[in-house]
Computed example of a mutant assay.
Amino acid sequence: MNRKAEPPVGRAVLAFGGLVLGSAVLLLWCFRALELYIALTQLLRDLP
């Protein structure tokens, strides 16, 4: 392994993978929160 490689070998791929997975999880979390908000507003609207 070449220690003087720019960027260090393997770390750029891991960083990119972390960014992609983190973004995907954040988007899924936001969609689930929006889904919950819509369900709760519909439930509260139907109450007498």
Rank of each mutant, 00 (worst) to 15 (best):
A5C: 09
F31S: 12
V25D: 01
E35V: 09
K4A: 12
L47R: 14
R32N: 06
N2D: 15
A24H: 02
L47V: 11
E35C: 10
P8L: 08
Y37T: 14
A15C: 03
L14T: 08
L28N: 10
A24E: 02
P8D: 04
V20Q: 01
L43C: 07
M1A: 15
L43W: 11
L21P: 00
F16D: 06
A5N: 07
N2S: 15
L44T: 13
T41E: 06
L19R: 03
W29A: 15
F16K: 07
E35N: 08
L34W: 01
A15R: 01
L14C: 06
L34Q: 05
C30N: 10
D46V: 13
P48F: 03
L47D: 05
V25L: 09
A12K: 01
A5K: 07
V20F: 11
L40M: 12
V9T: 14
I38N: 02
R32K: 10
A15D: 03
V20I: 04
E6C: 02
F31C: 12
G18W: 03
V25N: 03
G10A: 00
G10I: 01
L44P: 10
V25R: 02
A12V: 05
G22Y: 00
A24Y: 02
P48C: 05
G18F: 05
G17D: 11
L40N: 02
A5H: 08
S23A: 06
A5D: 09
E6Y: 09
L44N: 10
R32V: 15
P7H: 00
A24L: 12
C30V: 09
G17E: 10
K4T: 15
Q42K: 14
E6W: 09
A5V: 11
R3N: 13
E6R: 10
A15L: 06
A15Y: 13
L26E: 04
R11Q: 14
G10Y: 00
G22E: 00
K4F: 08
G18M: 03
L47F: 08
L14H: 04
I38H: 02
V9R: 11
S23M: 02
V13K: 04
A39W: 12
L14I: 05
L47W: 08
A33Q: 09
F16W: 01
G10K: 01
G22C: 00
R45Y: 09
F31Q: 14
L27T: 05
L26S: 04
T41Q: 08
G22K: 00
V13H: 05
F31Y: 07
N2V: 13
R45K: 14
L43H: 08
P7V: 06
A24C: 05
C30E: 12
P7I: 05
E6V: 14
N2W: 05
S23V: 04
R11I: 11
A39K: 12
M1S: 15
L19N: 05
Q42G: 14
D46E: 13
L40D: 04
L36S: 07
L36V: 09
L34K: 05
G10F: 00
L27H: 01
E35Q: 07
I38M: 06
M1C: 14
E35L: 12
T41D: 03
P7Y: 00
R32S: 12
N2E: 13
G17A: 09
P8I: 11
P7C: 04
G18Y: 01
I38P: 06
